[in-house]
Amino acid sequence: MILHLIFYAYALVAVASAVMVIASRNPVHSVLSLVVTFFAMAAVWMILHAEFLALILLLVYVGAVMTLFLFVVMMISVRQESRRKGFVRYLPFGILIVALIIGLVVIGIGPERFDLSHYPAPLLPGADYNNLTQLGSILYTDYVYPFEIAGVLLLAAIIAAITLAHRGPVQRKVQNPAAQVAVRREDRIRLVNMPVEKK
């Protein structure tokens, strides 16, 4: 029972902060709301006995990725959105789509079809069970192929990011005295023999 309360509290926080991410006009607030969302999700994962993943989410996403993201947002100093253009115009369409999806999810996978009696929870593992060992033992054996593809995906992302950010080599504009002294007349002037133009 107490676990239910904890779950609902964190789930509520997750949804509310996710709404804040898109509703907030200040980009810094959006990023911070996203941090809260990740934090709440980590707590939910913890309830699901996925301790390792929950900690990784906190360390990697909250600790590293979102901090970097915050730096970027502050550095490029995105202006606050002054007015939302077309918000009212697209609102009915958006509400329709959201209502459709929520309706689909509630009717399709509501509690009467997707509950513990249809799909019983897995047995609780013993005290010597270790999430990390389990993950490590299948990640590099059974799941080595998807794991490698994920690595390639990151490599492709690095190349893509560099390509998009790269604006050509930047060279220092300094003088090279040796080259200046060694310059010859032939390097700078070319005399061309041209016929006289007739009017």
Binding site: L153, A156, T163, L164
Partner: peptide, 20 residues
């Protein structure tokens, strides 16, 4: 899982190729 990863590898490269 492999289908999804392949799809992402393809899409990610294509987004970058368009933006290049």
């Amino acid at each position: 899982l492999t289908i999804y990863l392949g799809l992402e590898l393809l899409s990610l490269s294509l987004y970058a190729m368009v933006a290049m």
